[in-house]
Amino acid sequence: MKKHWYDYLWLFSAAYLILGFFNILFAWVGLLCFFIPLIIAITKGSKAYCNHYCGRGQLLALLGGRLGLSRKRDIPPFLRSKQFRYGFLAFFFTMFFLMLFTTWLVFAGQRSLSEAVTLLWTIKLPWHWAYNGTAVRPWVAQFAFGFYSVMLTSTILGLITMLLYKPRSWCVYCPMGTMTQLICQAKAKKAA
């Protein structure tokens, strides 16, 4: 099959995770993975982002598929149920807003910057080497640590379900995927 430029976007996803290890401020670039799928879904009513451009999905397909790091078993029906997918979306966004709230507290000077990355919403990993402490306003760094935590957590979950089930199992319950599908559904209904 013919390769397109966008078939290499997995490099972007891999680079993102690596760069964030050295300088946390790169985490801001991740907002692209947040806004692009939403804008495409809202304006075009399509999941073209998932279907073509998502580096995360490509990375999982590559590791689990080509490199064989996946058992390639069926996902348990519970994980692909609407209850779980919508529930996970709600949980994910609750945690996301809490992260934004923390950023706001730092912005308002009511909390000091925490130079840590929180894995799976609970495990605090030291990450101070990725920030020199003076480059930007504290809230800018706090958001970077928070956003990178979200990205790393979802990558870890994606890798776990890649190993256990199919390579792209994460795409079944990925909050961005679920949300863009919901937007497309609403748009399709309105058009009908």
Binding site: S46, R168, G177, C184, K187
Partner: peptide
């Protein structure tokens, strides 16, 4: 009703027999 519209099938089909319908 169970499809998550990820597009994995669409990208894999050697015959181009799969179409994604409105992102749904």
């Amino acid at each position: 009703a169970q499809c998550v519209a990820c597009g994995c099938c669409f990208n894999t089909c050697p015959k181009g027999a799969i179409e994604m319908i409105k992102g749904v």
